[in-house]
């Protein structure tokens, strides 16, 4: 404005006679400028109002953990990645109201070992590191040999948990026995105490040490595995949290595995996806458990290898070790 004024003044000093008309001109220009400013401001304000009016279309509704429905601008929404603390807290607590059980039908097992490989892939294990192993069993000379998949038995009276000096292995409310490799000191007392030989130890750097670098440790998957700590079958606690069946159960092509919740008395076959009553299944087929005389109260049940679907064949690799 002042710049305009100065220019006007120098003009009037040059041409005196048109002073009056210039003055009028000046007023006119000033008036125009003022109108333009007001219009501009109004336009910005209108635009602002307009944008404000558009907002409800760009938010999304989110349910908070305490059951409140809230709205969040869409551009501020980020994918949720739980941190170590979340994994640890929820992993140690377990899934409320559940009592997981596994049932293994030995009459259907033909040693396909799909359960073993699926498990090893999920938990980043070497081919000879087992959370789940299939054993050849023969009780005595005249007894027939059969295949027996052997996971951790997730005992209700777990000897491994009793002896752990640092609470690295623990029993959850949903029946699963887990191992926290952020805590484990590698004393291997649990291995000595476990009658099912369910536990393995990372004597060297685990399989995917390089690839898993920087990953957040998920206690329910036990990945990344760590050197100098224990690992074992977890009943695929990470899959159960997502409402899926364990890796081994889903991978079996022969319908060997049933998995489910003891509280609901319902177990689902991993191959046929058929859900049946646990008690009925055990009752009709003469279900049993391993080494119950030790008082460990295992959560894994077996159905005997009668009326076998597949004939027993000695595996190609010849002697794989002693028979029971």
């Amino acid at each position: 404005m002042s710049e305009e004024k100065k220019t006007k003044k120098s003009e009037s000093s040059e041409i005196e006679r048109i002073l009056e008309s210039s003055r009028r001109e000046f007023l006119k220009k000033a008036g125009l400028s003022g109108a333009a400013i007001i219009t501009g401001a109004a336009a910005i304000y209108a635009g602002f109002r307009h944008e404000k009016g558009k907002r409800p279309e760009n938010v999304i509704k989110v349910l908070t953990p305490d059951n409140r429905l809230v709205e969040i601008p869409a551009d501020q929404v980020k994918d949720y990645k739980p941190g170590l603390k979340v994994f640890q807290t929820r992993g140690r607590a377990g899934l409320k109201g559940k009592k997981w059980v596994m049932l293994i039908d030995l009459s259907k097992c033909r040693n396909a070992r799909k359960c073993v490989t699926a498990c090893q892939a999920a938990h980043h294990l070497r081919p000879y590191e087992y959370h789940m192993n299939t054993l050849i069993m023969q009780e005595s000379v005249n007894m027939p040999a059969y295949y027996m998949p052997k996971p951790c038995h997730h005992c209700d009276n777990p000897p491994c948990v009793s002896v752990c000096p640092v609470d690295a292995t623990f029993k959850r409310q949903d029946g699963i026995v887990l191992i926290d490799n952020e805590r484990c000191i590698g004393c291997r007392f649990c291995m000595a105490a476990c009658p099912y030989s369910a536990r393995i130890f990372h004597w060297q750097d685990p399989q995917n040490t390089e690839e898993d670098k920087g990953e957040i440790y998920n206690i329910e998957l036990n990945v990344p595995q760590k050197r100098g700590t224990i690992s074992k079958c977890l009943f695929s606690a990470d899959r159960l949290r997502d409402g899926m069946l364990p890796y081994c159960v889903s991978a079996c092509p022969n319908g060997v595995y049933y998995f489910g919740d003891e509280n609901e008395d319902a177990v689902t076959n991993g191959t046929t996806k058929e859900t049946v009553s646990l008690k009925e299944l055990l009752k009709k087929n003469g279900g049993y458990q391993l080494l119950t005389e030790l008082g460990t109260k295992p959560r894994v049940y077996y159905l005997p290898p009668k009326n076998r679907l597949f004939e027993f064949e000695e595996p190609d690799s010849g002697t794989q070790g002693e028979k029971s």
Binding site: Y128, P195, S197, G321
Partner: peptide
Amino acid sequence: PQAHPFLPVQNVP
């Protein structure tokens, strides 16, 4: 005592 656990040692090196 560790060489002969309750269940057979199989499929390992």
